[in-house]
């Protein structure tokens, strides 16, 4: 064989195209994470209030996004928004919307879990020195909760990045979609090129996610050591 499969990566603009695809993927993930985390923190705080209707509604929202697989969520929004609500959005925006709502749902649970595990004496001490509800959350509960929830939040971010691989299903030109096109275009010339293309995509995802999981793991370990030391 005259052609080695790995050369498919360096043929024409293939490598640049793949990296541009990764950039699209990355952008969608970044927007969704930022919007999702902000909404999620607010919803998480609301879920600790003693308003049964609010809590019920937010719980249903969380459970819906937890139970329906992300693939299905993407299709739901992709098909139903244009037909039922006459909202025509390109795949990229649908993806940002779905991922933001999904991140918000998951984040609300992380924040709620962290807020209720801040020791009760912290809350009572805050009230005792005359903080109002806003000050209590702003200066006492949220800062401690953020520290508690950081590993879980980082893990959520790695999950979002992994899940962006599904974008090709709603025809977003992400790295997987571009990879597929390159494979199809070069199949004759480089029969083993498919191995290298998907191998590179595999590696790209790993290179983004691995440092994040490593960081989360380290934080978690530190926290465990701290609690054991008490």
């Amino acid at each position: 064989m005259a052609h080695s499969g790995i050369n498919v990566l360096f043929e024409g603009t293939n490598l640049t195209r793949l990296l541009l695809g990764m950039w699209t993927t990355f952008k969608i993930a970044a927007v969704a994470i930022i919007i999702g985390l902000i909404i999620g923190i607010i919803l998480g705080i609301l879920r600790t209030f003693h308003n049964p209707i609010l809590r019920f509604v937010l719980r249903i929202y969380l459970e819906f996004f937890r139970i329906v697989p992300t693939v299905v969520l993407l299709f739901l929004f992709y098909y139903i928004l244009p037909r039922q609500m006459n909202l025509h959005m390109p795949g990229t925006q649908v993806a940002m919307l779905v991922f933001s709502l999904w991140v918000a749902a998951e984040m609300s649970d992380i924040v709620r879990g962290a807020l209720i595990s801040v020791p009760i004496h912290q809350k009572e001490s805050g009230l005792a020195i005359g903080l109002n509800k806003f000050q209590l959350y702003r200066y006492v509960l949220v800062p401690q909760a953020v520290q508690l929830e950081l590993p879980a939040t980082i893990n959520l971010i790695t999950r979002v990045i992994k899940t962006t691989s599904l974008l090709m299903l709603i025809s977003v030109m992400d790295v997987v979609n571009i990879g597929q096109q390159i494979v199809e275009a070069n199949n004759q010339k480089y029969p083993t090129g498919v191995f290298w293309i998907y191998g590179l995509i595999f590696l790209l995802y790993f290179l983004i996610d691995y440092p994040l999981s490593w960081w989360a793991g380290r934080l978690e370990k530190k926290r465990l050591e701290q609690t054991n030391g008490e």
Binding site: G5, K162, G199, F206
Partner: peptide, 23 residues
């Protein structure tokens, strides 16, 4: 464990289904 946790299932499947036959 690190490889499996830090890569998407979709790419793992593509690898198994499309890239392995080439090998």
């Amino acid at each position: 464990i690190e490889i499996s946790r830090n890569t998407p299932l979709l790419i793992q499947l593509f690898f198994l289904y499309y890239a392995f036959p080439a090998m």
